[in-house]
Computed example of a mutant assay.
Amino acid sequence: MQTKRKLVKIGHTAASAGLVGGLLAYMALLSVNAPETAAGYEQLRGSIKVISDWVIFPSLAIALVSGILSMVVHTPFQDRGWVWIKAALGILMFKGVLTVVNAKASYAAAVAADITAGTAAPDALDELLQLEWGTLWVVLAITLANIVLGVWRPRIVRFGTASGTKAQPATAPANDADRAADKAA
């Protein structure tokens, strides 16, 4: 069981790194000066779509699945409030990436192709670009909050077990104040 826990943790950590890296790469490409030609802009948008399709979305999927698996292979996580907060934030990240980031990357690539073909105005992506930046910052903030929760593991809420008794901490309290807080909970 210990090996399964370690493998799930490695997968979750690697996926989180991939997600942050993919979001930062997406932002880096958006921040470069627009290419001089419509064809160059179309290439830039194609690169962003590749990052979204091959790095961001798969990393998010692996992070979500490995996060759920970590609750299965390490049952004390089921009683930790920070884990449930991470799960809720993971759903928000999934919605943000699937419905906004990934969709916007695909849509923008198609509009860039239309601009190149001359069937769309050169400023057709201006409004989308503002929405894109806002969404990227929000998804990045949620991702970093999830990472902080996973590292910090604060004692936010502890849920009762099925028998109605309080769940026991996964590790012994570090000091007398922690012991007193455990007794009060």
Results as ranks from 00 to 15, higher is better:
residue 112 A to C: 09
residue 166 K to E: 08
residue 32 V to I: 07
residue 141 A to M: 00
residue 122 P to M: 04
residue 56 I to D: 01
residue 183 K to R: 14
residue 18 G to S: 02
residue 143 T to E: 00
residue 158 R to Q: 14
residue 82 W to V: 04
residue 174 A to R: 15
residue 174 A to F: 13
residue 138 V to D: 07
residue 161 T to L: 12
residue 88 A to S: 08
residue 71 M to T: 09
residue 25 A to S: 12
residue 82 W to Y: 15
residue 175 N to Q: 07
residue 53 D to Y: 05
residue 128 L to V: 05
residue 136 L to R: 00
residue 54 W to R: 14
residue 47 S to I: 02
residue 175 N to D: 14
residue 85 I to E: 06
residue 110 A to F: 01
residue 65 V to C: 12
residue 95 K to N: 10
residue 97 V to F: 04
residue 74 H to S: 08
residue 45 R to S: 15
residue 111 V to C: 09
residue 108 A to C: 03
residue 60 L to T: 01
residue 170 A to G: 15
residue 40 G to Y: 08
residue 137 W to Q: 13
residue 173 P to V: 10
residue 33 N to M: 07
residue 68 I to Y: 15
residue 103 A to H: 13
residue 68 I to M: 14
residue 15 A to C: 01
residue 171 T to K: 15
residue 78 Q to M: 10
residue 14 A to C: 09
residue 168 Q to S: 07
residue 166 K to P: 00
residue 142 I to H: 00
residue 174 A to Q: 11
residue 158 R to P: 01
residue 62 I to F: 08
residue 110 A to G: 01
residue 88 A to K: 11
residue 119 T to Y: 03
residue 80 R to C: 06
residue 32 V to A: 15
residue 113 A to Y: 02
residue 32 V to G: 15
residue 62 I to M: 09
residue 118 G to M: 12
residue 39 A to V: 10
residue 131 L to V: 06
residue 112 A to G: 13
residue 44 L to H: 07
residue 145 A to R: 00
residue 168 Q to D: 06
residue 173 P to R: 09
residue 74 H to T: 04
residue 6 K to E: 07
residue 59 S to Y: 03
residue 85 I to R: 12
residue 115 I to K: 13
residue 8 V to Y: 05
residue 111 V to R: 06
residue 134 G to F: 00
residue 161 T to R: 15
residue 156 I to K: 05
residue 15 A to F: 02
residue 59 S to V: 02
residue 173 P to Y: 13
residue 72 V to H: 10
residue 136 L to F: 00
residue 39 A to I: 07
residue 127 E to N: 05
residue 111 V to L: 08
residue 24 L to I: 12
residue 56 I to K: 13
residue 6 K to Y: 15
residue 54 W to A: 10
residue 172 A to W: 07
residue 45 R to F: 06
residue 67 G to M: 03
residue 137 W to G: 00
residue 130 Q to F: 04
residue 78 Q to L: 12
residue 97 V to G: 11
residue 103 A to S: 15
residue 35 P to F: 09
residue 133 W to C: 01
residue 33 N to Y: 02
residue 44 L to F: 03
residue 33 N to I: 07
residue 137 W to H: 14
residue 100 V to N: 06
